[in-house]
Structures are given as structure tokens and as C-alpha cells.
Write a protein that binds this DNA or RNA. Structure first.
Length: 320
DNA sequence: CACTTGACCTGTCCGC
DNA sequence: TGCGGACAGGTCAAGT
């Protein structure tokens, strides 16, 4: 699979290191996973589960099995980059995919044709091979023989099983900022959230999940390019009109990406039967050395907020 | 308070 | 051909 991908990218003249630097799930990717899972596993009853260690489930193995086995999948929600699967046992599975986490659904009746892989989607050979593989951490088997796998190469992701009523009380959710795609995320709310961090650099603020939920490295860079703001600009120095542009850019880019099924790789898109992926529309992310489509300057890559950060040095000036 | 660094991990690429 | 180091980046904790 890797070699196919390399060949395709090479032939298209779009060589990149896609094979190992895979797009991390941010809000649009997690939303795509959510809607896919909703369609595929809602109503199914968990028959059995296997999991690697306590790392996947801090609950005792006995509790984990007790609250999972026999439970029916009621509904699936997303908040920021986190998924919550509500079960009829009144427990919920809370899942953060972090960078390399995937949820793979395999239907019992047509194994080869209906494999659905969600998440970061690193294109290793297991996509064509069988699961579980060495990065499988959790497997849920349903009563009809279908299964959901949690694969996570780098093991940064986590799952928690806890009473549904306690889900909003976990620290992660308590700290989380507003959902940028809800109608309540107005320009006024956006400005108010940003102004809590007046002296900080805008990129760091956009990545801060307690300010706004769901934005990661890709969408931070893309939004800042769209609004013509340098990532290192301090919030207090950004003009009113550019803040307005940034607010609109965040919403429009996240929406477009969800429409495109997220920024995952070609294989994932094929598995979902969608024609495009958002990353093909990226203007700056991993485009260093290429021309800015607005002004033809060369896009550069710097480090900001400890992350690789892509920008057009002419369109996005530090203070203007 | 703002910012940086390290830790958590694995796989891949690059230079020697 | 092999090996070490850099790098990818979401989040939290600790240090400056």
C-alpha cells in the first residue's frame, strides 16, 4: 500500500512524505468518523471485547467487560476532537484518537468489500490485510459477527469507559472551549474568547482547545492564511476586520473539510467512496517551497507554538 | 501569565 | 547496507 501511494504521488509530481506523516484527526476528521460510525454501528449489540492493557481501559478488565458486553450502541457524539459512544448500559465509551488513532469497522458479511477505516489512516499494509494487527488495541465484536477495531500505532490515543452522566464532568470536557460550528459561535463570542489571551501569539491560541474546540495544526495554518494573519501575531495586534475574516475562515474551512470527508489520505477516501479530501484544497499546509496561489510568493515553514507552521511571508505579515 | 521543553510513542526519512 | 538522529503533532505537566 505504501509503495502504491508513493508511486501515485511521485507520478503526479506531488511527492511528499505522506506515508509516515499522516494527517491527524481534527474536528472535521472526527466528525466524519462520527457520522460514519453512526450509520454503521448504531443499534448493534456488543457480544465480546478484547483489549490490550490497562492503558486502553483504566477500568478493571472485569468492569470493562461487564459494562460493554450485552450493551447496545445508542448514539454517537462528538465534542471537539473527542468521540463519545453512548451505550444502553448507561455507560459511555469516550475516545480520543490523537494522531494515529483509527476506528475500523469490518462487516461480517462482506469482509473485503465493506471495510471502513476511520481516523488518521496511516496506510500500512493492514488496510489490505487482516485485523487485528500489531497496532490494534481494542476490538469490539457485535452479535452479528461484525467488529469495530481501535488501532493506534503510536498509542497516544485513549479510551475511557465511564457512566454516561459523568462524561461532561471529566476534566477534558470541562476545560473545552465552544464548538466553532454551532450557531452560538458568533463573531462576538470568538473575539471574547481570543481576548482572554491578548498577549499570546494567534497560532498558539487557535491550538488551545480551551479557547475554541477542535482546531489543530492543519486548520490553524489554513485559517490564518485565509485571513492573511501571520501565525506569530499577538492577538491584541490583530485588526477588527482581520478578526472578522479569521472567524469566517475557521467556520468556512471546517465546513468545507467536513463536506470533503476530512483531510485523510487517498485510501481512506476510497474506502468511504468520496471523491476528494480536504488536504487537496490546502493552501499552505505542507506546501513549503510552493507558490502562494494569491501572490506567487514562496510558502515557508517555520516553528510556532512548537509546531511546524506554514505561511505565505508576503500575504501574512507579522503586524500590519 | 506566556512560552518552552519534555514526555508519551512508533515508523519513516535523511545523512553519514 | 545499516545506524543514529530528526521529525511528525495532541495534550498535559513541569520548568523558565
Amino acid at each position: 500500500m505504501c509503495s502504491i501511494k508513493y508511486a501515485v504521488n511521485y507520478v503526479l509530481g506531488r511527492w511528499s512524505t505522506l506515508c509516515h506523516t499522516i494527517y491527524m484527526p481534527e474536528l472535521p476528521e472526527v466528525e466524519t468518523v462520527r457520522s460514519g460510525l453512526e450509520r454503521l454501528i448504531t443499534g448493534r449489540i456488543v457480544q465480546d471485547t478484547t483489549f490490550d492493557t490497562q492503558k486502553s481501559f483504566p477500568n478493571s478488565p472485569e468492569d470493562t467487560k461487564a459494562f460493554l458486553i450485552g450493551a447496545r450502541i445508542k448514539s454517537i457524539h462528538r465534542r471537539g476532537k473527542v468521540l463519545t459512544i453512548d451505550l444502553s448500559s448507561n455507560y459511555s465509551l469516550v475516545i480520543h484518537l490523537k494522531m494515529t488513532g483509527q476506528l475500523v469497522f469490518i462487516d461480517s458479511h462482506a469482509r473485503l468489500k465493506s471495510k471502513k477505516r476511520f481516523g488518521a489512516g496511516h496506510p500500512n499494509k493492514s488496510l489490505l490485510g487482516d485485523l487485528p494487527d500489531k497496532s490494534t488495541r481494542v476490538k469490539l465484536t457485535f452479535e452479528d459477527g461484525s467488529a469495530l477495531y481501535f488501532n493506534d500505532q503510536r498509542k497516544f490515543g485513549w479510551m475511557r469507559l465511564l457512566p454516561t452522566v459523568e462524561v461532561p464532568e471529566i476534566d477534558f470536557f470541562k476545560r473545552l472551549g465552544p464548538e466553532p460550528l454551532q450557531s452560538t459561535f458568533t463573531r462576538e463570542l470568538f473575539t471574547e474568547r481570543l481576548m482572554r489571551r491578548k498577549q499570546s501569539r494567534i497560532k498558539a491560541v487557535l491550538l488551545d482547545q480551551s479557547v475554541i474546540a477542535g482546531i489543530g495544526n492543519i486548520y490553524a495554518d489554513e485559517s490564518l492564511w485565509a485571513a492573511k494573519i501571520h501565525p506569530e501575531t499577538r492577538v491584541i495586534l490583530i485588526s477588527r476586520s482581520k478578526l472578522r475574516a479569521l472567524h469566517e475562515a475557521i467556520i468556512n474551512i471546517l465546513r468545507l473539510s467536513i463536506e470533503k470527508g476530512g483531510s485523510t489520505d487517498r485510501n481512506y477516501v476510497d474506502a468511504e467512496g468520496k471523491k476528494g479530501s480536504y488536504i487537496q484544497f490546502a493552501k499552505v499546509f505542507r506546501k513549503e517551497g510552493k507558490q502562494c496561489e494569491r501572490c506567487q510568493s514562496t510558502i515557508v515553514k517555520i516553528r510556532s507554538a512548537g509546531r511546524g507552521t506554514h505561511l505565505c511571508p508576503r500575504c501574512q505579515r507579522v503586524s500590519q
